[in-house]
Write a protein that binds this DNA or RNA. Structure first.
Lengths: 236, 236
DNA sequence: TTAAATTTTTAGGCAAGACTAAACAATTTT
DNA sequence: AAAATTGTTTAGTCTTGCCTAAAAATTTAA
């Protein structure tokens, strides 16, 4: 049975592994869990002993199969609890991370599976991140693009955020952006990558900083159905 | 901020204090939390340092005002989570204690209060025990009697269990007894205090051992309304 | 009222997990 | 290629919480 601290380390490594290929550095892990590199280093050899990470001295670590299974389970619990907090207790999406951080360590397979069912087997957490299933693999997630890379003149819908810390989420609140917001890229400014976008429910153009555009997942929204009439038989 | 271990000790002391008046012994506490008396003794001086218990060497401890406040908060969380597990996740009342034992240590005032509201501000947990309110005091609980002490020939309803461990609760299941069961004491056997009772929904008399009768809270059930007609004007 | 039994505390260890300071390895810079 | 910088590990210490074994205090029995 992993301790709370061990679970936090495994989760941190999982998080750092995605994106960066290869091994993860001790210092990065330390920073993520809020400890000194020395503490992280000590933890890494303990995790290595238990077979949860592969540790090459001075070159970082990577999760083993077993370590990954545990980390995915934690992630699953975290994201399910976030759904519960938002959907049923009325929390905002920028208030749930810290609490889920505690709830995720409650260890009961039965509890998690029943919670999953209670929530209706959700595929995504309140920030649009995929929730792993009971098998430890992600449920299918729709194709998505970063807003920063989306083409112009398409009807888009915000489906997720990248690495959504509370500060970023609150900033989105200020901008009036949330999951499901519909928008269109009107102009891309090559100077710094900032975008002029038009929101479906607002008149004016709005300028979005590249720091925002690079952290929003969007998908093409299903276009409103267009009714096409045969050319030579217009309606009366 | 108390640790999980500290919270468990405070809860154990609270539990032992009710009933037994005066101070609580180190050994009893040790047994309750599953540690040796030596460990409990060490913990008591730590709790004393932090002002959560009054510790008279060799004569046991009692909770201070502050200690009691913390312990009641834990109890509140425990019982609210039990309600959640039974009411919304479909657990049986003999399956929830262990899980609630973990959930109770999740520390967020906001979470607990929202959970309370979500559950509809329940007064009792699934075992019929009172749930402390946000102020740390019990919500009003109806008058109740132990079945072992209830008078004969009254319509009674089971409203709670004393000290309901999972084994006892499962035994009640075998006997077909649950919260809300209606029964009448037909005969009290002075030999050992066992009772012959008749359940409202069953024909035969059933014999209940004193070990069961002493651990069931009952209340007088509202008698079915009796329609009384004036004597000299019977209905047609 | 001593002696025996019980309960409680102290003493001395151990493991997890954190820290600082110092040593060591790897990477950049010059 | 040597020097400086950066990153990682080791060494030594601290706290919490647990343990066993032994000492001290209290209670019970003779």
């Amino acid at each position: 049975m992993p301790t709370v601290s061990v679970e936090n380390y495994l989760k941190a490594i999982l998080h750092l592994e995605e994106g960066e290929e290869g091994r993860v550095s001790t210092t990065a892990i330390a920073e993520k869990v809020g400890a000194t590199p020395a503490s992280a280093s000590a933890m890494m050899s303990r995790l290595g002993d238990r077979g949860w990470v592969e540790h090459e001295r001075y070159y970082g670590v990577s999760l083993t199969e077993k370590g990954q299974r545990i980390a995915m389970e934690i992630l699953r619990r975290h994201r399910l609890w976030e759904r519960f907090l938002v959907d049923h207790l009325g929390f905002e999406w920028d208030q749930v991370h810290e609490i889920a951080e505690e709830l995720e360590h409650v260890d009961s397979r039965e509890l998690v599976n029943r919670l999953d069912a209670f929530l209706g087997f959700p595929k995504l957490d309140p920030h649009g991140d995929a929730i792993p299933g009971p098998n430890g693999r992600f449920r299918s997630v729709a194709a998505r693009t970063l807003l920063a890379e989306a083409p112009r003149n398409l009807d888009l819908v915000v489906v997720g955020v990248v690495d959504g810390g509370d500060a970023f989420l609150r900033h989105l609140g200020v901008l009036g952006i949330e999951l499901g917001s519909r928008l269109t890229v009107m102009e891309r400014h090559s100077f710094d990558g900032s975008l002029h976008v038009r929101f479906a429910d607002v008149d004016e153009l709005q300028l979005l900083a590249p720091s925002v555009c690079a952290r929003l997942w969007v998908d093409q929204s299903n276009p409103a159905p267009v009714i096409v009439f045969p050319e030579n038989d217009p309606p009366s």
